[in-house]
Nucleic acid binder design. Structure first.
Lengths: 151, 151
DNA sequence: AAATACTTGACAAAATTAGTAGGTTTTTAT
DNA sequence: ATAAAAACCTACTAATTTTGTCAAGTATTT
């Protein structure tokens, strides 16, 4: 459950390749070869990311894609938001849809909090973290909800 | 992104209704009316939950479904696991599939950690929490990754 | 025996995902 | 100027998953 689509997965991997080359342009062909994703499919993905100003494109020989910010300023959340929309565990919680039941829905708050936790997590991880691999430093035992405080 | 299917959503809501009636049996018809889901669809869902021993069914007049444990012993994670399988952000991370790339996949660890965080969260929430509504007590500002410790 | 409720399996419409195909435009180097 | 390298754009389609419905049974209690 809670699968990410290939667009999101490939998108992050593509951004990783572009981050590796930063600040030099990286071509679709290179990304395609290194990440083993078809050029045509990558085009669609990078197109979206370009329109949201996460990357800049340069045409012609020597061209390619370049990050529009430093790797540490681009979060995984930002990438996925562009490619898959905001985290929305239920359609209810998608800002573009809206909830009919709302008040009498016991699970509404549950999914809302879960979504917020996921977003918070993805916001703290940047391309820099992927480059240096320091994701490993997340304490294994740390729970999202280790303690419960009174409201 | 990261949508839960209706099966998972309805499943949790159905379990909530059964928990509300606990320890008296609750019929499919009641659940259907209160949660506004078709009886036929609910049957499929409850069938799965019964096979995994989360609930017990009683036939005949006065029958219905009953929780097989106390509400505080049934986590949301347990319900969703039965209906949608384990949390697996990528197919790579689904134990029933497996990853070809693994070692050279920079994002593998990222999705693994995210999945673990989600599972940890869902494991801490029980039907009891849904009944009493004390989900509200989760501190709003608490981040999954507030501090970074050295490995 | 009648009422009530659960069981099973097949089927199908709708939506989403995943990817292909083919042509256009811009830039650079010769 | 011209050719090559690269990104850009639009449409289409095949496959898969989701979201259910339907119908004919089976089991239990009163």
């Amino acid at each position: 459950m809670l699968r990410l689509s290939t667009k999101g997965q490939y998108g992050v991997r593509a951004m990783f390749e572009i981050a590796k080359g930063y600040p030099e342009p990286v071509t679709i062909k290179e990304i395609s070869e290194k990440q083993n994703v078809s050029m045509a499919y990558l085009e669609q993905i990078l197109n979206k990311l370009r329109k949201s100003d996460l990357i800049i494109s340069k045409k012609g020989p020597g061209g390619g894609y370049v990050l529009n910010k430093n790797p540490q300023e681009i979060s995984i959340a930002a990438i996925l938001n562009e490619l898959e929309g905001p985290v929305a565990i239920t359609s209810c919680l998608d800002p573009s849809e809206g909830c009919v039941r709302v008040d009498n829905c016991v699970t509404h708050l549950l999914w809302k909090v879960l979504g917020e936790q996921i977003s918070a997590f993805l916001n703290t991880i940047t391309l820099k973290n992927l480059l240096t691999g320091d994701l490993l430093e997340v304490p294994a035992g740390q729970s999202v909800r280790a303690t419960k405080s009174k409201a």
